[in-house]
Design a protein around this nucleic acid. Structure first.
Length: 426
RNA sequence: GGAGAGGUGGCUGAGUGGCCGAAAGCACUGGUCUUGAAAACCAGCGACUCGAGAGGGUCCGUGGGUUCAAAUCCCACCCUCUCCGCCA
């Protein structure tokens, strides 16, 4: 959520900045609601002040043994007036909240103009795509030939967009998770955290998935509003919801979880293979930092994610998302895209964002400023470090051999206990 | 699942209708003292919000209700702890 004070004081400026992401802020509606809110709120609070003071008077009179009947008569209709005023205020407040909770974050000035992912700007690339002297297979064919990646069985068990893995591929998948966690913990200073894979509606509101993007999440049938997490970002970021954090900053967490996404609205996109699944695993990086630190923190975080690809020797490029492609809660996002030989292009494998105080304000996540002694909103950041399923298929495709086997990247061999070569199941 | 106890400020914890936004302690901040620190003593110190300010309002797990007035009484729900049962 944006700072309501900022929206109130500089609506034109806010609207202009939001226009970069193609969002139209309805200034007339906002101004009308704001004027109404002010009027109704002043009225309500005046009535409340009146009630408070007359109640106090009655209390004193009663204590002094005086007759309070005339006093009671004088306030007889105050209650009704107050109820009406409160109802008005609630209605205006609700409309205002609804409008405001629908407004996305303000993009940084450095975010490039643009409407779609085509307008994202490459800021660096690393490694060069391997030259193949045989016909390249994609991970689906490779997995099929190895008999270790099985979409048909998954479709029987559940439906489309699920996968079953066996033997070497399953092991490689598991090795990747351990490798990523260890690297971020030992080399990059993150704390490991393990969290529930089911969250409530408040948590989804805090990170910005609700109320606007409910259809992207799997909702459980349960007496409470429970959802499967679409990313570890939700539970991990919400660990500081409704609190004033008194520890030292930055606070950096690395978390491995499965992620569940309904992928509503992406019918027909990436239907082949495990690029876009309803369930996938991810190692997520989450940081809580002081406001003035968040720019540097994002650069560092992207570097942590990139380092995984460097250690795996997978070519990638990093792009900054343009205004039209940036997510709802983010002020700035870098995507890391890994080279996929079968598609002859780079595909997203990580998305790293600075949310500034947008999520913190929704969550009321604060820290104590040691200099002023006051509580202030934190800045939150997160990024994939990395999406495990996509990393797995990138390895399969980039490390494939002419006979269809897969070489295990050096760095993973301690995690596969020396397994160097994934070959067809016997 | 059964039976009890409880949810109050950053933390511990008192408060069972009005003088309570809330005692006390810890923590924190400033001061005195000290070469410096500690200790001791003195003072300050909840969050959010409206307002240029004076000042106003809201908040004692959540949501309803009773009342002129609710942390306090009533109802529902959520959560935590203890004991019993069951269970990976």
């Amino acid at each position: 959520m944006l700072d309501p004070k900022l929206v109130r004081r500089e609506p034109e400026l806010v609207a202009a900045k939001l226009a970069k992401r193609g969002y139209h802020l309805d200034l007339d509606k906002l101004a009308a609601l704001e004027a109404k809110r002010r009027e109704v709120q002043l009225n309500t609070e005046a009535l409340q002040a009146e009630r408070n003071s007359s109640s106090k008077t009655i209390g004193k009179a009663k204590a002094a043994g005086e007759d309070i009947e005339p006093l009671l008569a004088a306030v007889s209709d105050l209650g009704n007036k107050l109820d009406e005023a409160k109802a008005d205020l609630d209605a205006v407040q609700e409309a205002l909240d609804l409008l405001l909770s629908d407004v996305p974050n303000i993009p940084d000035d450095e975010v490039p103009e643009g409407e779609s992912e085509e307008d994202n700007v490459e800021i660096r690339n690393w490694g060069s795509p391997r030259k193949f002297d045989f016909e390249i297979r994609d991970h689906v064919d490779l997995g099929d030939q190895l008999d270790q990646l099985d979409f048909e069985t998954a479709a029987k068990l559940t439906g489309s967009r699920f996968a079953v893995m066996r033997d070497g591929i399953a092991r490689l998948h598991r090795a990747l998770i351990q490798f990523m966690l260890d690297t971020h913990i030992e080399d990059h200073g993150y704390r490991e955290i393990h969290v529930p894979f089911i969250v409530n509606a408040e948590s989804l509101y805090g990170t910005g998935q609700l109320p606007k993007f409910a259809e992207d999440c799997f909702k459980l049938e349960h007496d409470q509003d429970y959802y499967l997490i679409p990313t570890a970002e939700v539970p991990v970021t919400n660990t500081l919801r409704d609190s004033i954090y008194e520890g030292s900053l930055p606070l950096q967490y690395v978390c491995h979880t499965p992620c569940f996404r309904s992928e509503a609205g992406s019918y027909g996109r990436d239907v082949r293979g495990m690029i876009r699944q309803h369930q996938f695993e991810k190692v997520e990086l989450v940081q809580f930092v002081q406001p003035e630190q968040s720019d540097l923190a994002l650069e560092a975080l992207v570097g942590h994610a990139e380092r995984i690809l460097q250690l795996l020797e997978l070519p990638y490029r990093t792009v900054i998302l343009c205004g039209g492609d940036i997510g709802f809660s983010a002020a700035r996002t870098y995507d890391i895209e890994v080279w996929l030989p079968s598609q002859d292009t780079y595909r997203e494998i990580s998305s790293c964002s600075n949310f500034r105080d947008f999520q913190s304000r929704r969550m009321q996540a604060r820290f104590r400023n040691k200099e002023t002694g006051k509580s202030e909103l934190l800045h939150t950041l997160n990024g994939s470090g990395l999406a495990v399923g996509r990393t797995l298929l990138a390895i399969m495709e980039n490390y494939q051999q002419e006979d269809g086997s897969i070489i295990v990247p050096d760095i993973l061999r301690s995690y596969t206990r020396g397994l160097t070569h994934i070959q067809a199941s016997g």
